[in-house]
Design a protein around this nucleic acid. Sequence first.
DNA 1: CCGGAGTGTTTCAGCTATAAAACAAAATCT
DNA 2: AGATTTTGTTTTATAGCTGAAACACTCCGG
Lengths: 140, 140
Amino acid sequence: MARTAKSLINTQELGRAIRRRREESQLSLRDVADQTNVSASTLSRIENGTGKPDADNIARLTTWLDVPLERILSSGRDTADEAKAVVYYPHESTPEIVEAHLRADRNLSPETADALSALFRVAYSQFSRTEPAKSARKRR
Amino acid sequence: MARTAKSLINTQELGRAIRRRREESQLSLRDVADQTNVSASTLSRIENGTGKPDADNIARLTTWLDVPLERILSSGRDTADEAKAVVYYPHESTPEIVEAHLRADRNLSPETADALSALFRVAYSQFSRTEPAKSARKRR
DNA sequence: CCGGAGTGTTTCAGCTATAAAACAAAATCT
DNA sequence: AGATTTTGTTTTATAGCTGAAACACTCCGG
């Protein structure tokens, strides 16, 4: 069941990637802070993987990393360590998760992934309609 | 220049895309809330473009959508083409279009393409049964 | 009529991210 | 050496997001 409700964002990995990149570039914490409009204190926390960074800050830093978010979103697309997934998906078969996996499958064209996603979504809606769940669901 | 501090995330477009997708799917606010582990109240605010949603919530909703996260980012990397639409709207998936894509997919055998096409056609007839249902929804 | 269930919205307490500033330590100057 | 800058971290007050619950409204069956 979808009981976990865990975070989809791997802040640990994101922080490590930023710090690695920053040190490689020989930049100070405040240098990157100025470039990205993120305060040094926040950047420090993010690099240490503490807490849940703001969406805008994540966007600014991933932009600074010059890493397309699409690449970050799809886990396991690249075997390189630096392309490690920052966002991962729980192993449950909800439509959004299935969709994510399909889209990450390089053996499938995007159109095929879309079709299968839509197909699964329909099937899933049938499932959840008869699903006991918490309360009696009465769609329409 | 350090005064700009404009948000990189176009919450307006994101909210519109979610609402559009949700109404197309004939899903209630609480249905999507349950699927995505986002509370209905928060989802309402996000759909209305109010405030700055949490990173996790954005990730969950963009995953639920067919939208790569990079699509909701104001372009900060490329040359300024911010006039362009920043949100990707899912294309129409009619049986004809799906079939065409499946047949054009070289990674699928013709038999597989046919099977999936037929399968999708059945599913499509299911949810096109309640399909017309434009809007007629009145706020408040 | 009436309730009850559905819808989207809004209120509200709790919590947490944020940035500025204070902080300690290391590096660099003079 | 001492002094000053620079580093990453931690404190602080503010701001604002979050989800549960209350809200107002509509629809539908009895």
